[in-house]
Amino acid sequence: MKAKVHVTLKRGVLDPQGKAIGHALQSLGFDGVDDVRQGKFIELDLAETDRAAAQKAVESMCQKLLANTVIEDYRIELAD
């Protein structure tokens, strides 16, 4: 089973990298971009075949390593 994890900064947390991207877009002439928020995308190939168990395992990975839950949120998508 595959798991896709999206890790993004919590709403309201300053995103200097997003700010830099927005700025670069502007200087390249892409007008009309009001705000940019960036994050990271992690793809996991899991041996687990049970959906609930996989969800639980990835949750735990997110809590312990993949996301810094003090400033980041995460979203998990499972696919067979």
Binding site: L9, K10, G12, V13, L14, D15, P16, K19, A20, V70, I71
Partner: peptide
Amino acid sequence: KRPTVQVGDPFT
């Protein structure tokens, strides 16, 4: 119960 953590931007 923490508030939103401040994130620094050294380039700014």
